[in-house]
Each structure stands twice: as structure tokens, then as C-alpha cells.
Design a protein around this nucleic acid. Structure first.
Lengths: 235, 235
DNA sequence: CGGTTCGTTGATCTATCTCAATTAATGTGG
DNA sequence: CCACATTAATTGAGATAGATCAACGAACCG
């Protein structure tokens, strides 16, 4: 993927046209890229990374382990997301980042980020804004875990994923890539695999979704978003 | 409360000594203060506030309502916290802010905040950092809701609240103000009042805490933080 | 083509919810 | 400062969403 056409640039320029200076700043973010196979740790809890990452393609997630060995995924990272901004200002990572499908990421050294906060206020505000939007996603996730049943919870996450992929042009009609296993979906929703499986069957039986070949098809967006109580304005 | 001695200034200067210029910038944040009685909405979902707030004293919370009328508290706001930073960069509020105990807040107009991002890079990074720290709290909350039982979940929240209050000098030995009702604790933990009540009794019976007269006393921090799997490094 | 991961099913168990009622605080007007 | 009204805490009993355990088939992978 080239610096000229990446999901972050698409996201930012969709909001407001970029000046030449800003284009240059974004271009400079780009230092080198790395690729990871599926299900690899990209950053581990406790590490102090000297850089942030920008996901270019694939799907990744943040997760934490509890001391009794359970895993909780706290968010998915979709292309265009900068992860690890907190490593820029906070000392060490309080959670890990892992790939779900094979991922391509761009490395953004902290120095570069710091330079930008000096040189381009708008880009720096835009990145700040990204981190606030992420916080909004976390809040929704809390509501999801705290107040919705398995069936509704899974519907909500599917809506979120679809909407976020759509914002960066990664949907195909009513379909999105869905490399997430049922165990991972369980770790994201705080449910057991068995119960995830049964809830998925219910969603399928209701004609809301189809799930096959690593693709999620949303057959009835109106009803699915109602079931998931999804309102995309927070994104 | 005077601009010269407020919890935000205490928090920031605890991390790094402030220059005269930064002191001035912090002083300028201060425009006017407001007070709210207990259990009032301070900002409502959907509003577009022209200002952020800094909690000076009291306890507040963020919450969202689901479309079927359940409430989920997504975080508590303790003195020294700036809330609503997202209203600075995002259009409308995706959640509400309410007081729990009577609150005193300082109003920070968005203009002021914008001016600071220009004039003092360090203050602006510090505020950014605050918002990242808040995201870390959200993530922990997700882990809490997703992977811990009622008993452990409540223990965790108590540890979080104690630790956060301690950072701004608002603990008294092993005691903190605890104006939170059991219904509110239920809304925060995603549990029913009845079950909150029973879990609290268990925590008391185990000799971990005492709860009376609006004060929480942590009788055994070592065990409570173990039960809540609490590791304060994320704060 | 054998091994591992992933999805599916059945059966049983339990943490937590809901409903309903009672007691204890807390606040308020007179 | 009392009497009443309201809110908050507590208790019991019964119902259920979701967990756990265990097994098996299907898909994928080197």
C-alpha cells in the first residue's frame, strides 16, 4: 500500500480537505511497514513501544488477560486506525495488540508524532480526535457488555464492525470480511464459545445475517441495528 | 475553590513541575464555576456543549441509556478530571454527565482549550494524556464487565475509586467518600440492585470493606485488590 | 493424509435476575 | 422537632440466561 492512498488519509480527507502542508505531514508519518500473520501478538502488555502503528489492512484487536487467565478483547482495530497512541504519552502498554487476520501496518515513531504536534495543529487535532472517537467506541462497548443480552450484544458488534469498515470503504454491499472466530467473538463479548455459537445460530435463523467463508453478510440492516440498538453517530 | 489550588493543577504538577507560562495557561482555563446538587444532569446526550468541565469537588458520572430504558454508567468522574473533552473535537455528546454527590465544576470554554493547544504544547499534551488515561480506565471497565463475577467486579471498582481519589489527595487513611447508592453501583457494574446488595454483604462479611455514612473504608487493601484483580498502573 | 483448529450439539449446573415485600434512612413541610 | 413521604437497603423465593463439561463432525493446514 502506498502512502498516497491509505485508509487514514481517506478518513481524514473525508472530513475536511487537506492542505499541501498537511498532505506532506501525513506522508512523513510513514516510515516503514511491517506485516504480521494471523493471530500474532503485535505489541505486548508491559512493553514500552517507541512507536505507534497505523493499521493498513487486515484486522487486529486489543486485549487484556485477567490474572485467572481469561482474555477480554476491548476493541477491534480496523484499517485506518492508529493504535497505541497512548504509548506515545503514557509509559508502558497496559494491554496487548494482536492480529486476527494477516495485517499490514505502518510504523509511526513517537518522534514523528511529536514533530507533528508542533508543525501541524490540524493534523495533531485530527489524531487527538481519533483517540477521542476510540474512547467513544470503548464506552459503547461498556454499554454493550453491561446491559445487553448475548443475542443483542453480538448484533451490536456486527453493526459496529460493518459501520467502521464502511467508513474506510471496506465493505462490499452488505458484506464485510469477518475473520473473527467464535472464540474471539466470545472474548470480545464476554461470552462463552458455546453461547456465542447458539446466539449466532439464532441471528441466522432470524434471517438477520449470513456468515460463511470469512464473510459476514448483513441481510437485514434495519432489523439487525434495531436488535443491536445500534446508532452509528458515535463513530 | 481557588484557581491556585485545584485538583487538576495538583495532578499535573505532581507529574512535572510547571513553568510560569504553564501556570498562567492553567490559570486562564478558569472562567467561572458552577455548582450542582446531587443527582442532576450536568450535560445531556445529544447536546453540543461549547465548553468542557473540570470537576473541582464532588462525584459525577458518565452514563448512557439503552433504548429499552436501562442505564449504564460508563465511568465515574472524580475531582481533577476534565470531562467532555470529546465535545471539544466531536460534534455532539454521545452520552450524558450527571452529578452523584453535589458537585462544583469549572467551565472551560472550547476557545480557551483551542488557544492552549497553540500556546503551550506541554499543557496541551498533558490534557491529551488525560484523555488517554481515561481511555485506559474504559478498557479496564470493559475487562471488569466482560470477565469478572459480581463480587470481583465490585471489588475492582472500589479499588479504582480509591486509587483515583488518592491521586488527588482525597483519601483519608483507608477511607474515601462513597456517595454511590447500590442502584448506581448496579448501573456501573451491569448488575441488579439485589445482587449488588448481596455482593456487598459478602465483601463486608469477608472483612474487606466497611460501608457506612457515605464512607467506604477499605479494611484490607491487599486482599481487596487481589479479589478485584486490581493493578493501578493503568491510571 | 493425519493433526490441529473451529464449529456444533446435548446435558447439567449456577450466577444472576425478577418480582415482591419489609425495614431503615433521609428529607420535608408544618 | 415531629409526622409523613420518599428514597435506599435488605430479605426471600422462584425463574432463566448463560456457563461448564464433554463429545463429535467439519474445515483447514502443512
Amino acid at each position: 500500500m502506498s502512502p498516497d492512498d491509505n485508509p487514514l488519509r481517506r478518513k481524514l480527507s473525508a472530513r475536511a480537505p487537506l492542505t499541501a502542508h498537511e498532505e506532506q505531514a501525513l506522508f512523513d508519518l510513514w516510515v516503514r511497514t511491517m506485516t504480521f500473520g494471523a493471530r500474532r501478538d503485535i505489541v505486548r502488555e508491559g512493553e514500552s513501544a517507541g512507536s505507534c502503528g497505523l493499521l493498513l489492512s487486515g484486522l487486529a484487536c486489543r486485549y487484556s488477560m485477567t490474572s485467572d487467565g481469561k482474555r477480554q478483547i476491548t476493541s477491534f482495530i480496523v484499517p485506518g486506525d492508529i493504535y497505541d497512541i497512548q504509548s506515545f504519552l503514557l509509559e508502558t502498554m497496559d494491554h496487548s495488540i494482536a492480529s486476527i487476520s494477516p495485517c499490514e501496518i505502518a510504523i509511526i515513531p513517537h518522534d514523528t508524532l511529536l514533530a507533528i504536534t508542533k508543525s501541524s495543529q490540524r493534523i495533531s487535532l485530527a489524531i487527538w480526535k481519533e483517540s477521542l472517537a476510540e474512547a467513544a467506541i470503548f464506552r459503547q462497548w461498556i454499554v454493550n457488555l453491561g446491559r445487553r443480552s448475548a443475542y443483542h450484544r453480538i448484533a451490536h458488534i456486527m453493526c459496529e464492525m460493518f459501520a467502521r469498515h464502511r467508513m474506510v470503504g471496506l465493505t462490499d454491499g452488505s458484506r464485510v470480511a469477518w475473520p473473527i472466530t467464535q472464540a474471539e467473538l466470545g472474548d470480545a463479548t464476554g461470552l462463552s464459545v458455546v453461547h456465542v455459537n447458539r446466539s449466532l445460530q439464532a441471528l441466522r435463523a432470524e434471517g438477520l445475517i449470513t456468515l460463511s467463508n470469512g464473510t459476514l453478510e448483513i441481510q437485514d440492516w434495519a432489523r439487525l441495528s434495531q436488535v443491536g440498538q445500534f446508532d452509528g453517530r458515535y463513530l
